[in-house]
Nucleic acid binder design. Structure first.
Lengths: 202, 202
DNA sequence: CAGTGTAGTAGAACGGTGTTCTAGTATATG
DNA sequence: CATATACTAGAACACCGTTCTACTACACTG
């Protein structure tokens, strides 16, 4: 057997190995590390396999983008599963931020365009809707419980999302001007909810 | 005279021509357009001149970054010059957003890390402080006028900045889930200020 | 004004990138 | 078992950031 061809990844594993390698590279070394050759090398496959499975580099990035939104949706759904609407609302804010803290690199791919040549497909953009819908649902639950009075839940969700995203994003950009207190995010959350004229149940 | 060397930019103009070209390319074609050869071509200079004047590509990007913060600071100072503190506060929010709308590409370089290989120097990061300080000043004026009661002006500024940035950034990312109403930003501003327990003077 | 130093220019080269293509070979499938 | 499919290696190309060399046009000084 030719030693130069001693390794060959089983067909069923190739795509997953590529994605696993890409996610690891992105998380550990940032977006610049996402080169075809490096992904292939870490995945232990031939560079051409990336094209065979994902079409081009953008296909890999899109898969990461979409998996990020899937995970974010799951986190929001877990918050929504909490019985008390107010607690669910706060939990959604925390879950959102926690996601961004746990996976900053993916978060930036999802929201901050850190891979400038990547443009999500319309299919991928559909994926972004699900986490948003969950937030709308949570806000509707708060409205039904009279925790929040009035307003279009979609508008409320967009505003709330903006606020939390802003907090997270500035933190990521290293443009915090002050040393954040231990409970700064909770204070921030208090302030945002105050802006929704929220009346807590507890 | 050798026709191939018929053009030579006067020494005093080279850096400015490079910066002008870079800003135009960034604004019109996005961060991927910022290549040394393309900048040089648009500027009408030799690629080596970019290195002579800016050290490397990052030097060009840093100059754009810093000029962005200078302009943002100017916009915030104009808002701060308004006599009524509450009006000044609202105006600062509008000015911030208007800046981002007018110059989205520069804004993204400043806040969204859209050029992944670029890391601002510590000098450049000092530039980011001035606009923030102006916002702190505006909030302190509101406190002095009892429009806002209590709280550390620095923390308030960080939170407010986060909120407005979030609104702007999600808009840039094209992740708005809803059709924004004509006055959506004003409503958003109302909501953020409500979160600061703001009592308007007018 | 002439001479010298400086800076702008053109071009080449190198390692790296994304992508496309070709040909060989090991699995996967029927 | 035979054939089709998919994985692999390698080459090539245009483009990128960067570095280097040599030439030439200004800019400055005496």
């Amino acid at each position: 057997m030719d030693a130069a061809r001693s390794h060959r990844t089983p067909s069923g594993d190739v795509a997953n190995e590529i994605l696993r390698a890409a996610a690891a590279l992105l998380g550990e070394h940032g977006p610049e590390a996402l080169t075809i050759r490096r992904i292939a090398s870490v995945a232990g496959v031939a560079p051409m396999s990336v094209y065979n499975h994902f079409g081009d580099k953008g296909g890999v990035v899109e898969a990461l983008f979409r998996s990020g939104f899937t995970a974010l949706h799951d986190a929001m759904e877990a918050a929504n599963a909490i019985a008390d609407p107010f607690v669910a609302l706060r939990a959604s804010g925390r879950a959102y931020r926690q996601f961004a803290l746990d996976r900053p690199a993916v978060y930036k791919v999802m929201f901050s365009h850190v891979i400038p040549e990547f443009t999500p497909s319309s299919d991928a953009l559909m994926d972004t809707v699900s986490s948003f819908s969950t937030l709308v649902t949570i806000l509707e639950r708060c409205q039904e419980a009279s925790i929040i009075v009035g307003g279009d839940a979609n508008v409320l969700a967009q505003h709330l999302w903006s606020m939390i995203h802003g907090y997270v994003a500035l933190g990521h950009a290293g443009i915090s001007k002050i040393e954040a207190a231990e409970d700064d995010f909770e204070q921030f959350l208090d302030r945002t909810l105050l802006g929704f004229a929220v009346r807590p149940t507890s």
